[in-house]
């Protein structure tokens, strides 16, 4: 764990990704200080282009796009991290149990996991959301949490299967440690990087999927979120009428958040898997070769 954090602090991708994420987080927290307007208030004429009063212009019904965007960050972050946490917890617990217990328990968990993996996720979510009607961000987060853990189970289980063969697990078994203790204190700490990757990956997935469901008209149109912004802009034919700011602002926000999370994820992978680590470590090697101080 400590090793992972030290490694991440030295990784350029991790530092950039984390910086962007922290900025988005701060903007979301201090949103009321960063705008004079209310999130849903009509504060200007419709579809005003970006100006000094409205940095990112206004929407079709005269809301301030910048205000919507920074308040929307709260929703995206909350849904992303909330659902991401749920997905990870369920995936990790089931994955470790399946991988460690094996036998019947494993067969059952594995069967359901594989089944969920082959049923296409987005259409399934669409059907669920359609029956629920106008799903609030909270409901969307819950649906995502309960339906999207399968990938996590698969990778955690695979990793558990290899960790359980290690000597320290065998010796804990010899000492007669109870199974839950072995799973929690012997196996789980060794899965920390795979759990981290699963968590960040799930957050990305949840952010993207929430926005997508809302864009498709399954969200609550009164919510303030990036997906609803896209939905309203699409309904207002923003691109056709030339109000590109209405559409591009939430696009930019989603892209930035996605990118920061993906950089962090990639960095965890590099730190946890030394073979993937290629960047700065070899710079000195390359320099020495170039200056002729050694031969390859």
């Amino acid at each position: 764990m400590k090793q992972l954090l030290v490694g991440l602090s030295k990784n350029k991708k991790a530092v950039i990704g984390l910086s962007i994420l922290v900025i988005i987080l701060l903007v979301a927290i201090f949103a009321p200080l960063l705008t004079p307007y209310g999130a849903s208030a009509r504060v200007g004429r419709p579809h005003q282009p970006p100006s000094w009063e409205h940095w990112f212009g206004t929407t079709r019904i005269g809301r301030d796009v910048w205000t919507q965007m920074i308040y929307g960050a709260r929703t995206s972050l909350a849904v992303g991290f909330g659902a991401g946490l749920m997905i990870t917890v369920i995936g990790t617990v089931l994955g470790i149990i399946a991988g460690y217990m094996r036998g019947k328990v494993d067969e059952v968990i594995n069967f359901f996991t594989n089944m969920i993996l082959v049923i296409p996720n987005l259409p399934l979510l669409l059907v669920l959301a359609a029956f629920i009607g106008q799903a609030s961000p909270l409901v969307i987060a819950l649906i995502l949490g309960f339906t999207s853990w399968a990938w996590g189970v698969r990778v955690t289980r695979a990793q558990t299967l290899s960790v359980r063969e290690k000597d320290f697990v065998k010796s804990a078994e010899m000492l007669g440690e109870p199974k839950w203790r072995i799973m929690t204190f012997e196996i789980f700490p060794n899965l920390i990087s795979i759990v981290g990757i699963n968590f960040i990956g799930s957050v990305i997935f949840a952010v993207i999927t929430e926005a997508t469901l809302e864009f498709l008209g399954l969200g609550d149109p009164n919510a303030v979120s990036w997906g609803i912004m896209l939905y309203n802009a699409q309904n207002a034919s923003a691109l056709t009428v030339g109000a590109w700011w209405d559409m591009l602002a939430p696009c930019f926000a989603l892209a930035l958040l996605g990118l920061s999370l993906a950089l962090i994820n990639f960095a965890i992978d590099e730190v946890a898997n030394p073979r993937l680590r290629t960047g700065s470590r070899l710079n000195r090697w390359k320099m020495l070769v170039r200056t002729g101080e050694g031969r390859i």
């Binding site: 990305i204 952010v207 993207i208 926005a211 997508t212 864009f215 896209l230 691109l239 590109w244 559409m247 591009l248 696009c251 989603l254 892209a255 996605g258 990118l259 999370l261 993906a262 950089l263 990639f266």
Partner: peptide
């Protein structure tokens, strides 16, 4: 990393725009 992290809806809208 960029293309996997940016939602399909965003890529599509940008391409359209």
């Amino acid at each position: 990393i960029f293309t996997t992290a940016v939602p399909a809806v965003v890529i599509s809208l940008l391409a359209l725009f």
